[in-house]
Amino acid sequence: MHTLEQVHTFSQLKVISDPRRLAILKQLMDAPATLTQLGKALGEHPAWVRHHLKLLEQAGLVELSEVKISGGFIEKYYQSKAHAYLFQELVLPEKPGKRTVVLSGSHDLALEMLAHLSGGDLYIFTNPVGSLDGLVALRQGLCLAAGCHLYDTNSGDFNSPYVRHFFPDKKMVLLTLAHREQGWMVSPGNPLKISGLEDLTRQDLRFINRNRGSGTRLWLDEKLSRIGVSPEHVPGYSDEVYTHTAVAVAIHQGQAQIGLGIRAAAASHHLGFIPLFQERYDLVIPQEHLTQKQLAPMFDAFYSGEFRHQVEGLGGYDVSHLGDQIIL
């Protein structure tokens, strides 16, 4: 089985930022090799290779795999410790006494509001990458929590089946932020008389889509498949944006005539809105994070009456279940 490992320290990143060492590492990912073999493959003297190979070895990226004696000479074979490496690192601000928190996952206006209201000793950043990629980032330790609204058609439940799949070995909590309303965003007054999913194939309309892996996109793709509509027959299907706000802006500026998103985003740009369904939006968070004292300012803001009131004011949010917990 081929192994893929994440490069997770700046010292490793520094070593492989040199294109010469990266070239050696790529050779050793394919197969073990000696200094002489690497020199021939790269057109360099073995002494040159030895210098860079030692740095890779010290960084924990390559290792000695075998020693052979041939014709009275000792041949040392080196190999990469993994068949492939993933380079992914967050660079965050640092200040004594302050902690930086990243909330990844699905875009949400209330989540952005929470980041703004949370004070104290916290820097809070939101990273709207979509529900699925948010869970991936949480699994990789690249965020504290992930916003999620993934509907499972088999169970009829939101988020739980996906979280169990990503975290079979860890206690996780689904902390409900709200139930929010999704639907079609259209021009004010709906002058093009848009009524449903079938309208997406109309040639007088251009659709603005969400990014792959977002809960909104997954819902749309499932519905299109169910009624037998191919994405290639939807004008604008390949036009992707990462947030509900970006969908609203595209329609407001006339770049598209229809998009799928939350009512609050439509209201913020004075667009028309055709409601389709309600969904539960949860913060997925490891259970041990709930009791960390450093995160108290964020949770104080989350449970405050001010936050609840402001979320209700966005439009399309039902906060009656805000704070409910599902422990998995």
Rank of each mutant, 00 (worst) to 15 (best):
E63T: 10
S160D: 14
Y242A: 11
L295A: 01
V163R: 05
H45S: 09
S225P: 00
Y123E: 08
I208Q: 12
A246Q: 10
P275R: 02
N154T: 15
F158Q: 03
I251T: 05
A250P: 00
L177N: 09
Q292P: 01
H51K: 13
S65V: 13
Y281A: 05
H165F: 13
T291C: 05
F277Q: 10
V311T: 03
K40F: 11
A137T: 11
G141N: 08
V67D: 06
L260W: 08
K26F: 10
L13S: 05
G72S: 06
D300S: 07
W48I: 15
L283W: 13
S238M: 12
P19Q: 12
H244E: 05
A296S: 13
G141T: 11
F207V: 06
V163T: 03
L177R: 09
R308K: 14
L322S: 07
E232C: 08
H45D: 15
N211R: 12
A82H: 06
E89H: 14
G130I: 03
E57V: 02
Y85G: 07
G130M: 07
I24N: 00
L260Q: 05
G119A: 09
H8E: 14
Q27R: 11
A264G: 07
L103Q: 01
Y151G: 07
H83G: 14
V319N: 05
V234L: 04
Q325Y: 04
A264I: 09
G323V: 04
S187L: 15
L271P: 08
L142P: 04
R210L: 10
G228A: 03
L38Y: 07
V241Y: 00
T9W: 09
A137I: 05
R20T: 12
H83E: 14
N159R: 04
L192G: 00
E288I: 01
H309T: 14
